[in-house]
Amino acid sequence: MQQVFKRPDALCDVNLHYCPGCTHGIVHRLVAEVLDELGIEGKAIGVAPVGCSVFAYDYWNCDMQQAAHGRAPAVATGIKRVRPDNVVFTYQGDGDLASIGTAETVHAAMRGENITIIFINNAIYGMTGGQMAPTTLPGQVTQTSPYGRDPKTQGYPIRMSEMLSKTDGAAYIERVSVDSVKNINSAKKAIKKAFQTQLDGKGFSMVEVLSTCPTNWGKSPKEALEWLRENMMPYYPLGVYTDKTAENKAE
């Protein structure tokens, strides 16, 4: 018998601190598998955010830097400008990327910064215990939207992939989900393509991953996946939002 599925080398052999059923672990593994398959673990430099995935610096075997809340794209920019031949990526949640770090995100995209962003959208602040995120859906109950998010007073959820797809500097943007085996496999393809975009020097790439937070959503891991499908997917449609990789190739 041959081993057909194993822990990727780029994923440190440590216990992940995430809650049971949290899909962060799946995305961590997908990134590691892509680093392995592209043979880039040795030249990758990752940037960890503030939020649930803050400990990401302990989870990938590549060099890592931990950034201030929302600043990962700026930190990654600094690294990439010093080491253009390395592969630089950030891993950020929705509060980090789409709220406190919106400016850094948008301008990294505008500059066509040749970095890759893995963006976890689970519609809530996890680490701090379930507050309203920029991506929290209308009507969604959180600790800071106890009566359900009311767009009239609390604003609308932000669709980052759609927004960034309008920037000239973004080369590749796709929204994926990790709610099913099929979607996990598609997510991996997208992550691989995002890293390949950087390797080819095409510019800014981002994969937005719809993800769950069973603990703060107050659901079982299985119910959380169902909630994601029924509520998040209609608001945040999956798909490729920008792909200039082919047109850049022609230039």
Partner: peptide, 10 residues
């Protein structure tokens, strides 16, 4: 803020 955090990365 971004400039200083770029310095942090660099």
């Amino acid at each position: 803020v971004a400039a200083a955090n770029m310095v942090f990365g660099a």
